[in-house]
Design a protein around this nucleic acid. Structure first.
Lengths: 152, 152
DNA sequence: GGTCTATTGAGACTGAGTCTCGATTGGTGG
DNA sequence: CCACCAATCGAGACTCAGTCTCAATAGACC
């Protein structure tokens, strides 16, 4: 149940939206598919450098921008203040992020929608968007089966 | 019901925690107390400059750091990705932020704690912290009584 | 294969936030 | 009221994420 999209899924999303399937974008897709948990733009830049993939800094940021727009990855604000991304399914949901290994799990809205509607009603605000982020320790890490953040 | 702490409250929090009540910190307290909605560190830097308050950049960042630690202000991640702060009461709660005027309202946990506990139970995660941010249009702005973000 | 336009990469640039370090000052004891 | 000393300050250098520009490149479609 890893929320990591395959590189094919990433490319399909790009193609479906009318973006060109360029060589650099294929590489980015592969990098994202290789991420187990959340990752920063700079993680990808670093991998691109160490693995001599030849991706430009700007290209990585641009690609992530597009993919975030398509909902293939989602922006995440870590408690540290860092900006990160996670690969995910493109519908509205929230993230439960492991503070140890970085792996994240999608969480469906369940009762939250009601709660948000209720808060809106009581406050008089016309709520447009909301964001719920949960941070904790995943079952594997609790069990000591610590899966490292580093990906293949 | 503005969640803006008075400058006295800010100073009391500092003093109570053993921090010195220096002249620059009094100025920062006054600036924060004068903010109606959320504000960035740079907003304060800018006001300090235009009003010739003589605050150093580092001092403002340091003060905000301390105050965030004390719970007098809270860090906020705007949907734009910017980092901002809001003055607030120092207990656990969440923010409902007006996307038009920037004013924010504290929201108590109500049903959220249960929801979070439930999500934790179902996912197997041991949830440590969570963050809920709501963005929408406040009653005043809906009514056209647009209160500008700029403060006194 | 040729064309046309989206895309790319290098690198300059911006702006937030941090760090250093000598100068200053609040708070306390005398 | 004054002196003392650690906490704090400000200036400015620095770092690092993210953006922008622009000439060169390369998908997609014919």
């Amino acid at each position: 149940m890893l929320p990591v999209p395959s590189d094919r899924a990433v490319l399909a999303a790009l193609g479906g939206a009318g973006y060109r399937l360029t060589a650099p974008r294929r590489v980015v897709a592969r990098l994202i598919a290789g991420q187990r948990g959340h990752f920063t733009a700079d993680d990808l830049v670093a991998r691109s450098r160490t693995e001599r993939l030849g991706l430009g800094r700007a290209t990585i940021f641009r690609s992530l921008d597009i993919l975030a727009g398509l909902g293939v990855v989602e922006r995440l604000d870590l408690p540290t203040g860092d900006h990160a991304f996670v690969g995910c399914e493109p519908d509205h949901h929230h993230h439960l992020v492991c503070s140890r290994c970085g792996r994240s799990t999608d969480v469906e809205d369940s009762g939250l929608a009601d709660l948000v509607a209720d808060l809106g009603r009581r406050s008089g605000y016309q709520v447009e968007t909301h964001r719920l982020e949960l941070f904790g320790v995943c079952p594997d890490c609790q069990a000591g089966r610590a899966t490292l953040k580093a990906a293949g």
